[in-house]
Amino acid sequence: MFSKPIAKLRSSPIQLMAERTRVALREGRSVVDMTLGEPDFPTPQHVGEAAIRAIVTGETRYTPVNGSVRLREAIARKFQRDNAIPCTPADITVGCGGKQVIYQAFLATLEPGDEVLIPAPYWASYADIASMHGGVLKSLATSPDAGYALQPQTLETAITARTKWLVLNSPSNPSGTAYTAAQLSAFAEVIRASRHQNFLVLVDDIYEHIVFDGAPFATLAEVAPDLRQRILTVNGVSKAYSMTGWRVGYGCGPRALIDAMTKIQMQINSHTSSVSQAAAAAALEGPQDEVRNRCQVFQHRRDLLLRRFDAIPQLHTPRPGGAFYLFPDVRAFLGRTSPNGRVIGDDMALASYLLDEGVAVVPGSGFGMPGFIRLSYATSDDRLHLAADRLATALQRLS
């Protein structure tokens, strides 16, 4: 009945655990939900007011398929201002979230058997979207001891004549790994030196404004301008501006690729909501102090949880450089037995056990790295302390 690629699709592990958590909450159970990657802050007031003005003034008609002129101009200025990437509105595409931009890029370029290189752990949707279009995931191994950072030699070995895309996400979901300009420059050297020159690079910068410890943000098209005709830089307003429900993502890349993606979008959804586009333009053009302040709050929460987790024996949690996730190594707890006699055979079993104990997390196997778990710390200090208490108690009870 269904096509082979669709029949192979799995349900999102994030959404599965989020739904199980919602069921537990509806049943009246006390659960600290750390599953979804959604900021707990409200959308900035001036952004909401811009959306209201758009409705009142009648900005409710069709826009160009690849985004309103005003929004694409704002995005082009943002790339120049924040990333030193020169571009024009014609180099920009706007979609219903970054996910749609990625979907259209893969649909426009992938042939069956093309390889998509993705460092693990990775956001599950990269692999699923690639497979929907005949692409083959080629997972690139990383180590918690190296902060889950891809090593240049690993990338060099992985590139073949079948490589069509390399995906780089920094700061990363789920690990929070944030690449420095020097690390990106090392990747650029590998790309330049490879005898295989026909692949593209998808750079997902959705967590650009959530970088910690005073570190400057860097992106590949900035540090390697000679490679810009091979780079699609994807971003959006969901994480930095707490606009997940507004569904606005965007991309900047080679004109031919942007044109192909626009043709696809014409047949999918015409364009992103005109009101959401007006709000996104206000977010990019307006004051950024609130974004910076929220980043400081996320850094405080990261440090809070790291201190608490460091006190839990055998729980190894690398220090992330950005985003709002921790990705602890829980392999030491697998194979143990819960107080009710259930064997914790894998990370999914551990996530189920922790949910029963009042903490909802996502198993690392859903991100291509079994034996780990992901926790979102986009919640209050009190909830984080409660989660840490419950996690410590639950792990100590395993025998």
Score class of each variant (00 low, 15 high):
Val291Ile: 15
Cys252Arg: 09
Ala278Ser: 14
Asn293Arg: 14
Ala130Cys: 13
Arg307Cys: 08
Leu326Gly: 08
Ala240Thr: 08
Asp91Glu: 14
Phe372Asn: 00
Arg247Phe: 04
Ser380Gly: 12
Phe367Thr: 04
Met243Gly: 13
Tyr126Gln: 15
Ser365Pro: 02
Gly176Trp: 03
Ile75Lys: 02
Ile312Phe: 04
Glu38Leu: 05
Gly28Cys: 06
Gln100Asp: 12
Val359His: 01
His316Met: 08
Pro363Phe: 02
Gln277Met: 10
Ala283Leu: 15
Arg307Val: 07
Ser380Ile: 12
Arg70Glu: 15
Ala127Trp: 05
Gly321Asn: 03
Asp204Met: 14
Val47Cys: 15
Gln197Asn: 09
Leu384Pro: 01
Thr109Gly: 02
Thr262Arg: 13
Ala181Ile: 10
Ala332Asp: 10
Gln265Ser: 05
Cys252Val: 09
Ala311Lys: 11
Gln288Met: 07
Gly147Asp: 11
Ala161Met: 04
His196Asn: 09
Thr35Trp: 00
Arg294Glu: 03
Leu334Thr: 00
Ser172Gly: 11
Tyr122Pro: 06
Val32Asn: 00
Leu350Pro: 10
Met348Cys: 13
Ser273Thr: 09
Tyr207Asn: 14
Asp329Lys: 01
Asp204Ser: 15
Glu49Val: 08
Ile129Pro: 08
Pro225Ile: 01
Ile129Ala: 08
Lys164His: 03
Leu16Phe: 05
Asp114Pro: 02
Gly98Lys: 13
Gln151Ile: 05
Thr177Gly: 06
Ile159Asp: 00
Val211Gly: 04
Asp204Ile: 14
Ala240Glu: 09
Val101Pro: 14
Arg72His: 06
Glu208Asp: 08
His316Glu: 13
Met266Ala: 14
Leu232Pro: 06
Thr393Phe: 01
Pro287Ser: 10
Leu350Ile: 10
Pro152Gly: 02
Ala283Phe: 13
Ile231Arg: 09
Ala149Ile: 05
Gly134Asp: 05
Asn83Met: 07
Tyr148Gln: 15
Phe79Lys: 01
Arg20Cys: 02
Glu208Pro: 01
Lys263Val: 04
Ser175Thr: 15
Gln197Leu: 04
Pro152Asp: 02
Gly253Trp: 03
Gly113Ala: 03
Pro287Glu: 08
Gly249Glu: 05
Leu202Ile: 10
Asp91Met: 11
Ala378Arg: 01
Gln396Ile: 04
Ala74Thr: 01
Tyr103Ser: 13
Val237Trp: 04
Gln288Asp: 04
Ala182Ile: 10
Ser194Asp: 06
Asp259Ala: 12
